[in-house]
Nucleic acid binder design. Structure first.
Length: 760
DNA sequence: TTAGGGTTAG
């Protein structure tokens, strides 16, 4: 009785089978909604019965009479639905049991339409095998069996197979399966799995080929959000087995995805933009964001912030402006980070008042957007104020901070203020702030330490700095490479090279390894002190630990060798530099040209200059200055003037104050103060400001010719320009004017200087 | 959001 009932139910089911079949061939994840409940129950009872009969001894025997199992499964004129066979198979104990069932179905079915059922059964076998040990080999073997029996894989079976083979790293087998899958069965889920597997196996080009087909406008398998996740994730991945997706591809792909209404989420978009900006590809980042905007994707402040940061670093203020305008137009609400970026940029370019205005508007919401500042923003402004010497205003911002909830001054706040006071030479106030932060339990860090040490060193208190370091070390704040760089530099500056070397050794011994800057600092100090052997040995140490010399460091060495008259060593260094692939710059050539011309080797100096030009470098004002100076030194002022005229006209390098100083000084010393005065007029015309060196040179020239009126005129001009006299000026003028009884003029000059100093 | 270095002509 059970059988007959089942047979009739089967008939009922068969009516639905075309629909079920269609589902099978295009089935994607997630699976289609479950059938009706009564159908469910019918199926369940059929499956239960089938499973019971499969335990019976006559299953798999080739009896001539119809068995109950055959009756159940094949009684009517057509086979039962593939869905049923698959569900029976799924409940078998193993893939080998399932394979036996497959063979049973194959040999017992008389129907022509059994093929879809067999495919479906095979899918279930794959499912079982995929959960068994050694699944990839089992699946591969089963795939062979299916092919042997001409049973096409369902798309889900193919998907499962590919995923499993991919996990086992079987690249070639994956490619074979992909090639053999019936193209008409492929769906988006299948393509997603293929792409994912290919990426993981490092087959980027194969993955992109599949993706390209998905992205075609008339694609049978259009991309969905999962496709997006796979691709955008792959774009951001750091470690690649194959090649990475290049920037151009990224922009193109995001744009094509957009045509299918698939977009990176805010996090992915922001990450992609950040990645481009870090590689200085703000143009691509810009295109990326705007593609998403144009095709209607969601763009939030975070992504815009990433781009604003990149544009700011590249100094592209025009695009920054455009982007903020677009944000307004598109109703993308700026947040505290957006304002932070803008305010930071203004502070860094010393436009602190502009920054304060933006800050005020933001806090009041007077421009339509009200945002509460955070500690970072306060710190940015405080730093900005301190960097332009407005520490007191910085302190009043700290008071504002205190009055705002959850915005207490922190270590960074104090560090900025301490640096401000140190830079202005108010070391005591910096120390007071240091004491205050300790009282408030805002803990100093190594930056606090270094800021104070640097301040002390720069204001002649090296010993206090060392004492302070020792004190802090004993309290647990250890110095780092920066600390030692500061101290080494400070000792080099006061020509205490031994002490500098001592600190260098001390840091290595105390387990703080020097970084490249520490090496560069010491090399420079030694080179300037003329200790080239020591400098060379530090260079060797630097190389031993794996650092490289950069252009400036090579220049320092070349300059050092020149100073010691070791031209051969200088050339050797230049050669090494070129061989190491470090391009000499104009400073390198200028150093050599200066040395060569000063030692009278003008032919070689000009040859080096030609080489410089050949290498694509333009002679600079320093190049011409070096030559002019050398010609003047040997009394060939005409030659110097010739170069001077040439640089302004032919080479289009405008002369600066130093150039004029060299010439004016030489002309005066050469008894040609008239010509020197005409050069001073020339400076006025060209807008080149004279400095104290200019005035000292011309005053000496005027004194030698006793041209008093001209001197008075220039003294007035000095006061006007707030150019402070130095001891040379005073010496020359005092001696001369006293001798000629013009002490009144001198007194007036000193008073004028005092007035101009106080007003300045 | 905070700290360090080195080069050429007077």
């Amino acid at each position: 009785m059970a059988i007959s009932i089942s047979a009739s139910k089967l008939f009922k089911l068969r009516l639905h089978s075309p629909i079920i079949l269609r589902h099978l061939s295009t089935e994607s994840n997630p699976p289609p909604p479950p059938p009706h409940q009564d159908q469910d129950q019918d199926q369940d009872s059929l499956i239960t019965q089938a499973l019971q009969l499969l335990q019976a001894p006559d299953y798999d025997s080739n009896s001539n009479t119809t068995t109950p199992l055959q009756e159940l499964l094949f009684s009517s004129s057509s086979p039962s639905s593939p869905f049923i066979f698959r569900n029976i198979t799924r409940r078998l104990s193993s893939s080998s049991e399932a394979l036996k069932f497959f063979h049973y179905l194959q040999s017992n079915s008389t129907s022509q339409d059994i093929l879809p059922s067999l495919s479906s059964t095979f899918q279930a076998i794959f499912e079982l095998a995929s959960r068994e040990p050694d699944s990839h080999n089992k699946l591969l073997e089963l795939y062979g069996t299916a092919k042997e029996h001409n049973v096409p894989l369902t798309i889900n079976a193919a998907t499962l197979l590919i995923r499993c083979l991919g996990r086992a790293g079987m690249v070639d087998q994956v490619l074979v399966v992909v090639k053999e899958v019936d193209p008409s069965l492929k769906n988006t889920h299948f393509c997603n799995v293929v792409i994912d597997v290919m990426f993981r196996l490092g087959r980027v080009d194969d993955a992109l080929k599949v993706l390209d087909e998905m992205l075609q406008p008339d694609s049978e398998c259009p991309p969905n959000d999962s496709t997006g996740d796979i691709i955008f994730g792959a774009m951001l991945r750091r470690e690649w087995r194959g090649r990475s997706i290049n920037d151009e591809e990224i922009v193109g792909l995001v744009s094509k995805f957009g045509e299918h209404d698939v977009f990176p989420d805010t996090f992915q978009l922001t990450q992609l933009i950040t990645k481009f900006c870090r590689n200085r590809k703000t143009g691509r980042a810009w295109d990326l964001l705007h593609d998403v905007m144009k095709s209607g994707g969601v763009v939030e402040a975070a992504s815009c912030n990433a781009l604003l940061t990149g544009l700011g670093k590249g100094g592209d203020f025009e695009r920054m402006n455009n982007l903020t305008t677009e944000m307004k137009e598109m109703n993308i609400q700026p947040n505290v980070v957006t304002f932070g970026i803008l305010i930071n940029l203004m502070c860094k370019s010393r436009r602190v008042d502009d920054a304060l205005e933006v800050f005020k508007k933001m806090k009041e919401g007077s421009d339509g957007v009200l945002v509460e500042p955070d500690a970072i923003m306060y710190n940015t402004l405080i730093d900005g104020l301190c960097k332009v010497g407005r520490q007191e205003e910085g302190l009043s911002l700290v008071e504002q901070m205190r009055s705002q909830n959850g915005c207490a001054p922190n270590t960074v706040t104090y560090n900025c203020l301490i640096d401000g006071f140190c830079k202005s030479g108010e070391i005591e106030r910096a120390q007071e702030l240091f004491d205050q932060m300790n009282r408030e339990s805002v803990f100093p860090n190594v930056i606090t330490l270094n800021t104070l040490i640097d301040g002390m060193c720069r204001h002649g208190r090296i010993n206090s700095a060392v004492e302070f370091l020792n004190d802090m070390q004993s309290k647990g704040v250890k110095g780092n490479a920066v600390t030692y760089a500061i101290l080494i530099n400070a000792f080099c500056n006061v020509n205490n090279i031994d002490k500098a070397m001592e600190f260098f050794d001390q840091m290595s011994n105390s387990g703080c390894s020097p970084d490249a800057i520490v090496y560069y600092t010491l090399i420079s100090g030694l080179s300037q002190a003329g200790r080239m052997d020591d400098a060379s040995s530090v260079v060797s140490k630097l190389k031993e630990v794996g650092f490289c010399l950069d252009t400036v460091c090579y220049n320092v060495l070349i300059g050092g060798f020149c100073k010691k008259n070791k031209l051969d060593k200088a050339y050797e260094t230049l050669k090494e530099m070129e061989e190491a692939g470090v391009k000499p710059d104009s400073v390198t050539y200028n150093t050599l040209i200066s040395y060569l011309s000063k030692t009278g080797n003008f032919t070689t100096a000009h040859r080096v200059m030609r080489k410089m030009i050949k290498e694509g470098l333009k002679p600079t004002v320093v190049t011409y200055g070096a030559l002019i100076h050398a010609y003047c030194l040997i009394g060939k002022i005409d030659e110097g003037m010739k170069i001077f005229r040439d640089m302004g006209s032919a080479s289009k390098v405008p002369p600066n104050t130093v150039i004029y100083n060299i010439l004016i000084d030489s002309l005066c010393k050469n008894d040609d103060v008239e010509h020197a005065l005409s050069l001073m007029d020339d400076m006025k015309v060209k807008g080149v400001k004279p400095n104290i060196t200019t005035y000292n040179a011309i005053f000496k020239g005027l004194r030698d010719k006793n041209l008093l009126e001209k001197a008075f005129e220039l003294m007035d001009r000095m006061i006007e320009q707030a150019c402070n006299p130095d001891y040379i000026t005073m010496e020359v003028l005092t001696e001369w004017l006293s001798a000629v009884g013009e002490t009144g003029k001198l007194k007036k000059f000193v008073q004028g200087y005092e007035v101009s100093a106080s007003s300045a």
